[in-house]
Design a protein around this nucleic acid. Structure first.
Lengths: 232, 232
DNA sequence: TGTGATTTTTGATATAAATCAAAGACAAGC
DNA sequence: GCTTGTCTTTGATTTATATCAAAAATCACA
């Protein structure tokens, strides 16, 4: 019952909308789960019964076509929620990328929270509004950017939104997802993603041979590339 | 001050969250504007001072790259709002497609409404959640669908969401926007859009020679195409 | 620590859609 | 009703990325 009180990422998530004295309610409304990599959190098209708040790790959200083509619509990491919908069923799927910890709210409990705490609803509206802005940015990427621009945008966004302060290395970007996931996120094939990363390395814009982490040598050139300035 | 009371599309918009007796407040918080085609409602990157509710016509929302490449992220028509953002500036632009009527809420008034009427905020959250789901669907289209599938998806969505009940013609789809707009929405060029529409006509899936309106002959084949079943 | 399976990279070729180019249709203004 | 400009369609060619194929690197598990 003190889980939420000691939660280290509370102020990074929607939960910061709830005051300390009401945290017991929050803790009682949710359940913490620990999930191994590649666990299905949400089955596309299944009944929308739960809502999740990610407290550790990364979750991928995606939509698929009947023949298996898949588009990852986003990666939800620490502090992000997922599973909000007006429809009775989820219009998307969700799977863990690495080991993930989530707080799960069942729908009725979530409804109660929203009704009882207007500031929680306010906070959620702000989060969804941000997600929509991100989605619009991604539509620009998918509809109008070249492969090189897409990969540059992706690396840049991860560098900015997920600063890797663990090691002393400057501008380190962690890529916990596979090339398949990156490709499905950027609307490319794994071969194109791989070739493009190799080309950026060849051009001394990034460095590092590790598959799941690279270092950005020139953030400014990367920024230029991401916004369509070829070269620089 | 009775403008909102006699508003014919109130129950199609966020305004339906406000009770009849409080409509005066709503009317006082907003101002109705009538705008000719191709009017800029929101300049990309400008200060986010207003929020709009579309009561007639169609508005296009878009994001651009410095070199002019543009991605239309959505079309807002009757009942849709636009201009919501957490940032101080708009991350997208908005322009009228045809003659448009909007109710404009200045930011402070909107904040007051949100604070005073939780059900208004609730309604807005639901709307943004829907928009996000639509954006995810569009990401699947932009990242993973062929030109033929994109055009089929577009026509199908317009057929479903904007039924044209004016004429006796069954399954009529109105296309008030130009080919440039359709191309910028689907992540294609105008030539590809044009060729694809011609091909669908050749295959007797659609008919009509009018540039701004077509008729769907086989909704089921269109549905099949849109979800990736080539032929059918 | 070795071994098979998986993931990533690199190479050769194919192709869907872009680009370049021009003709035809439509709309607005005189 | 003609003229002028814009929008749309169609055609020829190019190109960025996909596809097909195989080698190299990494990972997981014994």
């Amino acid at each position: 019952m003190h889980r939420c009180l000691v939660c280290e990422i509370r102020d990074q998530s929607v939960c910061r909308a709830i005051d300390d004295e009401d945290l017991v309610v929050l803790a009682q409304s949710s359940k913490q789960l620990s999930l191994p990599p590649n666990t299905t959190l949400i089955e596309e098209g299944s009944a929308a019964t739960a809502f999740f708040n990610v407290t550790a790790g990364t979750v991928k959200l995606f939509k698929s076509l009947p023949d298996g083509r898949r588009q990852i619509t986003g990666f939800a990491d620490v502090g992000h929620f997922l599973g909000l919908t007006n429809a009775g069923t989820y219009s998307f799927g969700a799977e863990t990328v690495d080991t993930v910890q989530v707080c799960r709210f069942m729908r009725p409990q979530l409804e109660t929270l929203l009704a009882d705490y207007p500031q929680f609803e306010r906070r959620l509206l702000a989060e969804v509004t941000d997600e929509l802005a991100e989605a619009q940015e991604q539509m620009l990427l998918l509809g109008r950017k070249t492969a090189r621009e897409r990969v540059a945008s992706f690396l840049l966004a991860r560098m900015i939104h997920r600063p890797c302060q663990t090691t002393g290395e400057e501008n380190r970007v962690s890529l916990p997802m596979t090339r398949v996931d990156i490709a499905d996120y950027l609307g490319l094939t794994i071969e194109t993603v791989s070739r493009t990363i190799s080309a950026l390395r060849r051009d001394h814009i990034i460095t590092g041979t590790d598959h799941h982490g690279i270092r950005v040598l020139s953030p400014s050139r990367l920024r230029g590339l991401a916004s369509g300035q070829e070269n620089a």
